[in-house]
Design a protein around this nucleic acid. Structure first.
Length: 437
RNA sequence: GUGGGCGUAGCUCAGUCGGUUAGAGCGCCAGGUUGUGGUCCUGGAGGCCGUGGGUUCAAAUCCCACCGCUCACCCCA
C-alpha cells in the first residue's frame, strides 16, 4: 500500500459509487444517502416536524448528565477533550443537545408543542467492529412540551412511517411503560428481593447491573437467567393508575392508527429521567444487530439539564447505518447516480470553445449536461458519454459549426438527427425535461 | 483492555515443500482507417508482495519484531 493517509479507524467515506469496507459492510453511495435522507425529511415534513441542527461539539457536562454519569458511554466511550479550560465532547447522541437548545432558546415561546427532527453524525470512542463505527449517523425526533398520549403515538407513528415509506416491511415494534421514578424505586426493591436468593446463579454482568442499574437485569439474554426472570415481579404491576391509563391510551391510539406492536415487559431503560412509554423497533432480518430505532418518554430530562420547570417530552432515535443494512436485507430499490441528459462531444479547438459556452447555456435552462474536460478523442468522448449513461450525445465539429446544426444522437437507439443551434435547448428540454420545457 | 484472523495491481483474488523479468478477472487508458459509445478483438499503464530485521547462493514464500486493518469478547445512548 502507498504512504498516503487513511481515514480514521471506525469512520468511512461515502463515495459516489458503493463499495465494501474492510469489515465487509457495504457502504452506500452518496446518492443513496441523499435519497434516504430526503425520504426521511419528506415524511417528517408530512408529520409536521421541523428540523433542528445542533453543533457536533457540545459541553462534556451536558452529555454526561444527558446520557447518565454512570453509564459506560460517559465513563469511557466518548470523544472528549479539553481546550482552554473548556471541556468539549463530540456528541454521542442528539437528544440532550436538542433539549439544551430548546431550553437555551426558549423554544416553548414559539408557542404550542415543539415537534423537532434531526439527522446527522454522532461519535463513540469504543472499539469499532462490524457495522459499529466511531462516527455514525442518527436521525430522530423530539416532541417537547406535552405529556399527551397523542405525542407518544405520533412519535411512534412517524418512526413507523419512515420505515414503511422506505419499503422495510419485516419489523417488530416492542412497547412497554416505565411509569414514574418513585414507583419504579418500589419495583426495583421488589425485583432485588426476588433475585436475592438467585444471586449465586446470576452472571457477573447481571450482578453488577443489579447494583448499578437493576432494571437492565431484565435485558439478560442468557436462557437460565430468563428462566429465573419468568416469575419475577412485573414493572407494569407497580406503575401508578395514571401511568397505566397513559399507556393504555397510547396503545389505543396506535391500534386506531393500525400500528402493530407487541408488549414487552422487559423493555427498559436505566436512567431516572426516562418515564412512561418506551419502545424499540427491530428487524428480524438483521440478526444480532436487530435494533433499528428506539425511544420513549423522558419527562425529567429537562430538569436534569437545569430547567426549573419540567418539560414533558418524548422522542425516538434511529441509526442510519442500521437502516441501510435493513434496506440491503430487504433488497429495496434505491436510485443510482444521477445521469446526464446530454453529453456534448467537441472536435477541435473551435468546437471546444463553442461547446464549453453552450454547455453553460443548456445548464442554465435546466438540463443536466456533461462534457469532456481532457481534450480527448471523439471516440473517447463517446465512450465517456456511454459510461455516464447520458440520454443524448451532441457531436460538434467543424461541419456542425458551419451548418449551425448540432448532430444529436439518441444513445439508446443510436439514431441521429441534425438540430439547428437555435432550437437546441427547446428540443432537448422537450425530450429530457418535459416538465421544464 | 483480552483473544482470533488478515495484509500481493484501483477492486476481487491466485501464487508459499524458497528458484528466471510476480499473475488472472474486472476496472482504467489506447488502437481495430478520415468525426461515433455499448458487444467483440488487440495492446498498454499500473505492484518497494504492509514495514524493518534475520536465515539462505536465492525470500511474496521460512523465522522474529513492528505497524495497519479486521472480527469477537465487554458495552450499547
Amino acid at each position: 500500500m502507498s504512504q498516503t493517509f487513511q481515514n480514521i479507524k471506525g469512520t468511512f467515506d461515502i463515495l459516489p459509487d458503493p463499495y465494501t469496507d474492510d469489515g465487509g459492510t457495504r457502504i452506500a453511495p452518496s446518492a443513496e444517502w441523499r435519497y434516504v435522507e430526503g425520504t426521511i425529511r419528506d415524511v417528517m415534513e408530512r408529520y409536521n416536524f421541523d428540523e433542528i441542527r445542533t453543533p457536533i461539539l457540545e459541553p462534556t457536562e451536558l452529555v454526561a448528565r444527558g446520557v447518565g454519569e454512570a453509564t459506560d458511554i460517559v465513563q469511557k466511550e466518548m470523544f472528549a477533550f479539553e481546550r482552554s479550560d473548556t471541556q468539549y465532547v463530540l456528541r454521542p447522541e442528539i437528544t440532550a443537545p436538542v433539549v439544551r437548545s430548546y431550553l437555551q432558546h426558549h423554544l416553548d415561546q414559539r408557542g404550542g408543542v415543539q415537534k423537532l427532527f434531526y439527522i446527522g453524525p454522532c461519535f463513540r470512542a469504543e472499539q469499532p467492529q462490524k457495522g459499529r463505527y466511531r462516527q455514525f449517523h442518527q436521525f430522530g425526533v423530539e416532541v417537547l412540551g406535552t405529556s399527551d398520549a397523542r405525542a407518544d403515538a405520533e412519535t411512534v407513528a412517524v418512526m413507523m412511517a419512515i420505515y414503511d415509506e422506505l419499503g422495510i416491511e419485516d419489523m417488530r415494534l416492542r412497547m412497554n411503560t416505565l411509569g414514574t421514578p418513585d414507583r419504579r424505586d418500589e419495583y426495583v426493591q421488589a425485583l432485588r428481593d426476588y433475585l436475592e436468593p438467585y444471586t449465586e446463579e446470576l452472571s457477573e454482568t447481571s450482578v453488577r447491573r443489579l447494583e448499578r442499574n437493576p432494571l437492565r437485569v431484565l435485558d439478560s439474554k442468557l436462557d437460565h437467567e430468563q428462566e429465573i426472570l419468568q416469575d419475577a415481579p412485573q414493572l407494569i404491576d407497580y406503575v401508578s393508575d395514571e401511568s397505566r391509563a397513559h399507556y393504555d391510551r397510547v396503545q389505543q391510539l396506535l391500534s386506531d392508527l393500525g400500528v402493530a406492536y407487541v408488549e414487552d415487559p422487559y423493555l427498559v431503560r436505566g436512567l431516572d429521567y426516562y418515564t412512561e412509554t418506551t419502545f424499540e423497533l427491530e428487524s428480524p432480518d438483521l440478526g444480532a444487530q436487530s435494533a433499528l430505532a428506539g425511544g420513549g418518554r423522558y419527562d425529567r430530562l429537562a430538569e436534569v439539564l437545569g430547567s426549573d420547570e419540567p418539560v414533558p417530552a418524548i422522542g425516538f432515535a434511529a441509526g442510519m447505518e442500521r437502516l441501510f443494512l435493513a434496506l440491503d436485507a430487504a433488497e429495496v430499490e434505491r436510485p443510482g447516480l444521477p445521469e446526464p441528459d446530454v453529453f456534448i462531444a467537441a472536435l477541435g479547438e473551435e468546437a471546444e470553445q463553442w461547446v464549453f459556452r453552450t454547455t453553460q447555456d443548456l445548464r442554465s435552462s435546466g438540463l443536466h449536461v456533461a462534457l469532456d474536460l481532457k481534450g480527448r478523442s471523439l471516440k473517447a468522448q463517446m465512450r465517456e458519454a456511454n459510461r455516464q449513461n447520458a440520454d443524448y450525445t451532441l457531436i460538434i465539429g467543424g461541419n456542425e459549426l458551419e451548418a449551425e446544426e448540432a448532430t444529436v444522437k439518441e444513445m439508446e437507439g443510436g439514431e441521429q438527427e441534425d438540430i439547428p443551434f437555435a432550437e437546441l435547448s427547446t428540443y432537448l428540454l422537450d425530450k429530457c425535461r418535459p416538465d421544464r420545457a
